[in-house]
Simulated scan of single mutants.
Amino acid sequence: MEIGIDNFVAAVTDPADGRAVPPAEQMQHVLAEVVQADRAGVHTFGIGEHHREGFLDSAPVTVLAAAAALTERIRLRSAVTVLSADDPVRVFESYATLDLISGGRAELVVGRGSFTEAFGLFGLDLADYDELFEEKLELLLHLREDAHPHWSGRHRAPLTGQGVFPRPVQRELPIWVGVGGTPASFVRAGVLGLPLMVAIIGGDPRRFRPLVDLYREAGRRAGHPAEKLAVGVHAVGFVGETDQRAADDFYPGHAELFTRVGAERGFAPVTRAGYDAQRGPGGPFVIGSPQTVAAKIADISTALGGVSRFTVQMTSSIMSHPTMLRSIELLGTEVVPRVHAVSAAA
């Protein structure tokens, strides 16, 4: 199993002095985090995409390209690309360029996005939410196979053989589909034979097993081999020297960020009791010591019938940079070997 990190590059307050970290400084911190992950043995690092105040990740491929020049082994990907609100030609060109810069380490995770501000920002109709994604995913996959595509659809001017360049180092640029809890999204990914990234933000992860089984069955019926139907999980997480230390370090920024965002959707504020329940047995959060985090990752994988990638959402709006770097070090040097040991013994 591959272990990765996801970062939404939220604005950060340093808990030591209450200082709001300037955006330019925060971006340097993010790049240092990717370097730390690379050195520690983390397999993959993803940058999200948000077009709103309080986040610095509206142009994720730019951040990833900067990280590519500073790293050697770690795979670099979006988390996720809001494909519905973008032009697949530009997306492909950008990530093919990232693949060249990184020497073949680029990946895409594409989705419809859990926020909707990108639609109005780029002049799109939210009523076309699902149709936009389906059509643009079709075109993106076509571009991956053909440098001179012939294609037409409703939401973009047709392509009549124009060249789409550059081409990536990898023969087939990896494209994962990011999903929430919509059954049709799981079926779509299975029919297309694309790897699946399941965002498990709340509740018992076992409730996703029927949806993962639906994905695998749709892929099997479409004629795709089982090894092509990879399943990944994206979950909130953080690693500390002890369970208590990890929980205490991560809670303030998690609560502030998700309470602020949740208020827009009518969600109740995050409480410490609710947070502790989510990181306990049956919850999706992987927060604790290396032993606790590794065991929780293994348990979730077993519950879903085996996963090939687990990415930890470590975004926190109140966090010291040294504490984050130490957490990343523990994830790579202690959690990864433990997860591999459990997998080898299974």
Rank of each mutant, 00 (worst) to 15 (best):
E2H: 06
G4E: 05
A10I: 10
T13Y: 09
D17A: 11
V21F: 05
P23G: 09
A24E: 14
Q26I: 05
H29Q: 15
V30K: 04
V34Q: 09
A37K: 15
A37D: 14
R39M: 12
G41H: 15
T44Y: 13
H50A: 13
H51F: 15
R52W: 12
A59H: 09
V61G: 09
V63C: 11
A67T: 14
A69W: 10
R73K: 15
R77I: 06
V80G: 08
A85F: 09
R90T: 03
R90I: 05
R90C: 02
S94H: 05
T97K: 00
L98D: 06
L100H: 12
I101E: 01
S102A: 08
G104H: 06
T116Q: 01
L121Q: 07
G123D: 01
L126I: 11
A127C: 03
D128V: 12
D130L: 03
E135F: 04
L137A: 12
L137Y: 13
L139V: 04
L140C: 07
R144Y: 10
E145M: 12
E145G: 15
A147L: 06
W151T: 11
A157S: 12
T160Y: 11
Q162Y: 12
G163R: 15
F165L: 15
P174M: 13
V177K: 10
V177C: 12
G180W: 14
F186R: 09
G190E: 10
L194W: 04
L196F: 04
G202F: 05
G202R: 09
R207K: 14
F208P: 01
R209P: 04
P210V: 07
V212F: 06
E217C: 01
A218W: 01
G219Q: 06
G219C: 02
R220M: 03
G223E: 12
H224N: 05
F238S: 02
G240K: 07
D243I: 08
Q244G: 04
A246P: 01
A247N: 00
A247Q: 02
R260H: 08
R260F: 14
V261E: 02
V261W: 01
P269L: 00
A273V: 00
A273K: 03
G274W: 02
Y275A: 00
A277M: 05
G280S: 01
G283Q: 08
F285I: 01
K296C: 05
K296L: 07
A303M: 11
L304P: 02
G305A: 10
F310R: 09
M319F: 12
H321N: 05
P322N: 05
P322E: 06
S327Q: 06
L330H: 02
L331F: 11
V335F: 01
V335T: 02
V336M: 02
P337W: 03
A341E: 13
S343T: 12
A345F: 11
